[in-house]
Design a protein around this nucleic acid. Structure first.
Length: 567
RNA sequence: CGGGGCGUAGCGCAGUCCGGUCAGCGCACCUGCUUUGGGAGCAGGGGGUCGUGAGUUCAAAUCUCACCGCCCCGACCA
């Protein structure tokens, strides 16, 4: 491609509303243009990148025997009512009506559609197993789109679905996908973690996420520094650091205006670990008190899992009504009204703790949860903290941010049951298809690759994803010898099927160098007067800065061999 | 949805508090000449109903109200 006639609008200025490096660079390098919040146009260079990513995905999906299909993005809402997910998605699903006033949705994912397809086709165990996938535009009306293409409202997803006759088949399909995903992300040059995850709205028995460690990620990851334990904070477990305090008489202490653990801890001169944090939540219409060690935080996902209902924090007046005191002075001992109470497992067996007295400006010392709170139930309800130890090996844990690139789910029969996607097993019984669902965010691979591979000058692409392999820079196209040499080289590279971006523009040298560094093709070749004089032309690796020289006669060959030598 | 910020030329911004030579700057763009190894120089030029609508006023980018859009933090998130 000749830059003089290409639509690659690079910018020197950093767009003011982009914050994370990948978003800034994608805008500056002319990959994308915003149309509305979370909605982007892919310009030629960005689209070429997308296609490179899709090629890798297709190759690896095809390798495990998956078959590519293409389902509609626009679907009748009835399918979503069959599984109850029309309601479950709520405002996140884009909805519209056709001219006959029939309600339609723009699909946020495709389990229902695949299930409908499957129930029409699969009649017998002989039709199984199947793996079907597509690369499709998804629509999700995110409450807050952000970070450029990382959380968008319209985006590309590679979504695959496995259909199996039994649990063993599902395990096999799931493992095939896990392996394909490893290969895809590895080939894209990404360093990733595979972690245990929550399956959320998708349902099903187990799921794993493929995560890229990143300061700008939206997820929090717990990693063991010594073994392979890795989990999303939503589901991560740990051994808490041991603390113990000597038993004390139950005693009310005056703590005027000290509401937070921090304040009371300082006022009474006791460590935060000696406090018991009391929170009031509502699970549906039922209030629940949650107890945690003073230095721990509630994990709402775990609480939801434990109570089997969605939860929300109680409002201040609700707390007052139940406990008889304001938040900051509440506790499980003698609340104004009886309330179901659950405690985090780290509190089990503790003594001499301090908590709110259910009376404004007072706390209670000498709490032993087992004795002080009747009918107390323990469960793992807290977020892992970096002080904790690994449940597998006891080693120290690390807590870090990450970006979700892919997610694989064992769905089981959640969808096939409600949608009656049934088949006959060998004994003639009619049973639901066992399903799995497997997603990859296509744009996120690009954002992740940029986040992980850029410098102050711009993006740095590996060969596998680079839109072009070679960035050919002709410094002065007005100079006849420069022009001729560059044109000849361009032809030579094209005839060797090397994807080449040829900067034949009539702009200054510095401008071309800056643009080349910004776009980040693996190899840059410079044709200038200096090279002509000495018959020695410069080949430079974008990533390492390493340079090579070659005379015009062997320049194309040298470029090929340099390309072969780099990743 | 809660909190905060912003909206003036394609991009980045000043001007808004205190209404009246404020329609301005840099980059980009167009023409000409010169230039070409790290975002060139000179000269000339085009482009904006100041997000939208209502209001206050002799007069509104500037004050008031409403709405829309965009970004950030949080909530939420397959």
């Amino acid at each position: 491609m000749r830059l003089s006639s290409a639509y690659i609008p690079t910018q020197k200025e950093i767009p003011s509303d982009a914050v994370i490096p990948s978003h800034r660079l994608m805008l500056r390098a002319g990959l994308i243009r915003p149309l509305a919040a979370g909605i982007y146009t892919y310009l030629p260079l960005g689209w070429k990148l997308m296609q490179k990513v899709m090629t890798v995905i297709r190759e690896e999906m095809d390798r495990i025997g998956a078959q590519e299909i293409h389902m509609p993005a626009l679907n009748p809402i009835e399918l979503w009512d069959e599984t109850g997910r029309n309601a479950a998605f709520g405002d996140e699903m884009f909805r519209l009506r056709d001219r006959k006033k029939r309600e339609m949705s723009l699909a946020p994912t495709h389990e229902e559609i695949i299930c409908d397809l499957a129930r029409k086709f699969v009649k017998s165990y002989r039709d199984l197993p199947q793996i079907w996938y597509q690369i499709q535009t998804k629509f999700r009306d995110e409450p807050r789109p952000r970070s450029g293409v990382v959380r968008a409202r319209q985006f590309f997803m590679k979504d695959a679905y496995s259909l199996d006759a039994d649990a063993k088949g599902l395990d096999r399909s799931y493992d095939l996908h896990a392996e394909a995903y490893r290969r895809i992300f590895t080939r894209c040059g990404l360093k990733f973690y595979v972690v245990g995850a929550s399956s959320g709205l998708m349902g099903g028995s187990s799921s794993q996420e493929f995560m890229l460690e990143s300061l700008h990620g939206e997820d929090t990851l717990v990693l063991c520094t010594q073994c392979d334990y890795a989990a999303n904070l939503e589901v991560a477990e740990s051994r808490s650091s041991e603390v113990s305090f000597s038993s004390e008489e139950l005693e009310k202490v005056h703590t005027p205006g000290r509401r937070t653990i921090e304040e009371v801890s300082e006022f009474l001169g006791r460590p935060k670990t000696q406090f018991m944090k009391s929170l009031v939540y509502y699970a549906g219409s039922k209030p629940v008190m949650v107890l945690l060690r003073g230095d721990h935080e509630l994990n709402e996902a775990k609480l939801m899992g434990f109570l089997k209902d969605t939860v929300r924090p109680a409002h201040p007046d609700e707390i007052k009504g139940i406990c008889g005191a304001e938040a900051g002075f509440i506790g499980p001992v003698r609340p104004a009204r009886p309330i179901e109470t659950v405690a985090d497992a780290a509190l089990k067996g503790q003594e001499g703790l301090i908590t709110g007295a259910n009376e404004n400006d007072f706390h209670l010392k000498g709490i032993a949860p087992d004795r002080s709170v009747p009918d107390l139930i323990y469960a793992d309800l807290r977020n892992v903290v970096p002080d904790d130890d690994c449940i597998q090996c006891g080693g120290p844990l690390r807590v870090t941010h990450a970006m979700e690139l892919g997610h694989i789910f064992k769905l089981g029969t959640k969808y096939s049951e409600s949608m009656k996607a049934l088949f006959l097993d060998p004994s003639g019984r009619s049973i639901p298809i066992i399903m799995g669902s497997y997603g990859i965010g296509v744009e996120r691979i690009i954002a992740a690759a940029i986040e992980q591979n850029h410098d102050e000058k711009g993006m740095v692409w590996d060969k596998i994803l680079a839109p072009y392999q070679v960035h050919l820079i002709a410094l002065n196209m007005d100079e006849e010898t420069v022009r001729r040499t560059a044109e000849n080289l361009y032809d030579a590279l094209l005839s060797r099927e090397i994807e080449t971006l040829f900067d034949d523009r009539n702009v200054s040298a510095g401008f071309k160098f800056k643009d080349a560094d910004l776009m980040g093709m693996p190899v840059q070749v410079v044709i200038g007067a200096k090279g002509i004089d000495e018959n020695r032309f410069e080949i430079r690796c974008r990533k390492t800065g390493e340079t090579f020289q070659a005379p015009e006669e062997s320049l194309a060959e040298k470029i090929v061999s340099v390309l072969e030598g780099i990743s």
